[in-house]
Design a protein around this nucleic acid. Structure first.
Length: 604
DNA sequence: CCCCCCCC
């Protein structure tokens, strides 16, 4: 008979989280505390017993019918430490394998849970126990166990929120965590986990990863730095549930987290993370989907959740980050929902490379950023989460819609291709003065706008440079003054070079003027002359060279401009670059202007 | 203690 009890089960109960443990119930006592009854048991594994076993109040009706000497299987439990040293196990779920009747199995000795591993005392049935009253009072102290939503002073000792919640008793709800408690255990699902990131700045360097934790009451972000990063990164898996004990809580910086919690946690030396092997009712990731047509009304830089059918997938492409020169992989996909609108969603890095867009997968994205470049589009952030074909009702509804209706529907795209429509004109057409008033460029990312402007000045000096002749390089070469030109980027010497243009120009309209930079093909458009021809003119026909510039002036164009703050040795300056230039087509231009008037409610 | 989130 003893064989069926879990060998070393009592030790496991207080020191590990395991799937299930089989014990004999030696005694069971009712503890009256406040308005809640609570049961306390003496459990034995045949070798050791402990009386520091409480039953979660949700098991009160089971306990009332539990006869001494019954054999039970404990399916779920948590272990709490009271007064720094004494451990109490709280049984959250059990099955009765044999009800009562049997004799005591073996001659179990008392198991010592405070500090020392095991008592060396010999088996005795009259060993000292903490008084029921004392244990009960300690157990119900708010600092060790609080269960109510929001309040740390609740003293009920029952599962919080009183209702059908299945957050285990003895485990703190995430929504109750504050920096003012230091003893707590949460049971939470990891819904998102970042890659390891390193930093190196004036305050030092290090590495970190962060994760999003969720239980039935709320969510919270947790970050593990350096030592803790190494310790926990591999064990933490997305979608798994963990008991987490002790971490530092601090006020969350709302600029960087869209999670609904005023606090976030930082793992520290004392943080313990244990996988929860037992079944829980902790939900999976929670979304608050914004339907795609609603995105039109969402401000840029907002993070939102969205769900859609992937109807188009672009190849992975590589872009060069403007500020750092870093190469980044990206992939654009188009998602559509039953609002009949579709939007572009950009995936980065591994997400982009590993994405499989075949068979129109449903993409649920949490915390993606809304951009207003050329209409509206969406982009993943490192903190965003993605689920493919999630098993949620919105997903099934969308699939049904797509199969029946959506797949044949002409849907409207909120993301205008390349951000322009009609004669290279952006829907985002403004005057130069408007861009100034709106402080375009005064944020981390570049701003783009289109404007109708007159070319009023061209800086001839330094507009041409000797560029590397290697295909696609275009880096400036060094004239070695022996007929050889050296490219530092290719680390090669050439016997020729290409003339290339980098032209400074001033554009003006009725509101303001702006200095802009035009590269190669855009400069060629303004000058009406190739860079090679211009280079030749400069060397052989000074008058014609000058004339090329004068005849280019005072013409009107639609310019598409990129505005971004740049730093030149600690000095910040707004830099405007021409990304497209088109001769002014009055018909197209008037159409856009009329539309603007219409949207302002002004029309003839 | 990070906090970048890119490109058109």
């Amino acid at each position: 008979m003893a064989a069926q009890l879990t060998n070393g089960g009592i030790h496991k109960l207080f020191n590990e989280h395991v799937e299930s443990l089989v014990f004999q119930v030696l005694t069971i006592k009712i503890i009256q505390s406040g308005n809640h009854d609570r049961f306390r048991m003496k459990l034995s594994d045949g070798t050791h017993y402990s009386a520091c076993c409480m039953l979660g109040t949700q098991l009160n009706d089971v306990a009332e019918n539990l006869a001494p000497n019954s054999i039970i299987r404990v399916n779920r439990y948590v272990c709490n430490t009271i007064n720094e040293s004494r451990k109490v196990a709280i049984i959250l779920d059990l099955d009765v394998l044999h009800s009562g009747g049997e004799a005591v199995i073996g001659t179990p000795a008392q198991f010592e849970t405070s500090g020392q591993q095991e008592s060396s005392s010999t088996a005795s049935t009259n060993v000292q126990q903490p008084s029921t009253k004392t244990l009960s009072n300690q157990f119900d102290q708010p600092r060790t166990n609080t269960f109510s939503r929001g309040s740390v002073n609740a003293n009920q000792g029952s599962s919080f929120a009183g209702g059908s919640s299945s957050v285990p008793a003895g485990v703190h709800p995430i929504s109750s965590l504050t920096p003012y408690q230091n003893k707590w255990t949460i049971c939470a699902r990891v819904t998102n986990k970042s890659d390891i990131r390193t930093w190196n700045n004036s305050r030092g360097q290090g590495k970190l990863f962060s994760m999003d934790l969720l239980d039935e009451t709320g969510e919270i972000r947790a970050t593990a730095f350096n030592e803790q990063c190494d310790k926990f990164y591999n064990m933490i898996e997305i979608d798994k549930v963990y008991y987490i004990t002790q971490a530092q809580l601090k006020t969350a910086d709302k600029r960087y987290s869209s999670l609904k919690n005023d606090y976030e946690m930082t793992f520290n030396q004392g943080t313990q993370v244990t996988a929860c092997q037992q079944k829980t009712n902790i939900p999976n990731m929670q979304f608050e989907f914004v339907s795609i047509d609603q995105l039109e009304n969402v401000e840029r830089d907002t993070t939102i959740d969205v769900i859609g059918i992937c109807k188009e997938v672009a190849e992975v492409s590589t872009i060069t980050q403007k500020t750092t020169g870093k190469e980044l992989k990206k992939r654009d996909i188009q998602i559509v929902d039953d609002s009949g609108k579709e939007v572009r969603l950009t995936l980065w890095g591994e997400k982009a490379e590993n994405f499989d867009g075949s068979l129109n997968p449903i993409i649920a994205a949490k915390g993606v950023k809304v951009s207003d470049f050329g209409g509206k589009s969406l982009s993943f952030l490192s903190s965003s989460a993605m689920q493919v074909n999630p098993d949620i009702k919105e997903s099934h509804k969308l699939r049904a819609w797509y199969e029946n209706v959506g797949c044949n529907l002409q849907t409207e795209n909120l993301s205008k291709q390349g951000g322009s429509s009609g004669g290279g004109m952006d829907s985002n057409l403004k005057m130069i003065g408007e861009a100034v008033v709106e402080n375009l460029g005064y944020r981390d990312q570049a701003d783009y706008y289109s404007t109708k402007a007159t070319l009023v000045f061209l800086k001839k000096e330094n507009c041409l440079y000797t560029a590397c002749p290697s295909d696609g390089c275009n880096k400036k070469v060094i004239d070695m003054n022996n007929g050889v030109y050296r490219c530092e980027k290719c680390n090669k010497e050439y016997d020729s070079f290409n003339w290339r243009l980098m032209l400074q120009a001033s554009l003006a309209d009725g509101t303001d003027s702006v200095w802009v930079t035009l590269f190669q093909e855009h400069a060629e458009t303004l000058l009406g002359c190739t860079s090679a021809n211009l280079g030749a003119l400069r060397e052989h026909d000074e008058n014609a060279f000058q004339a090329t510039f004068s005849s280019a002036l005072f013409k009107e164009y639609i310019f598409k401009l990129r505005v971004k703050m740049e730093s030149y040795n600690d000095e910040k300056r707004l830099k405007t670059t021409v990304v497209a230039v088109t001769p002014l087509n009055y018909k197209d231009y008037n159409k856009v202007i009329l539309n603007q008037l219409k949207s302002m409610g002004i029309s003839s």
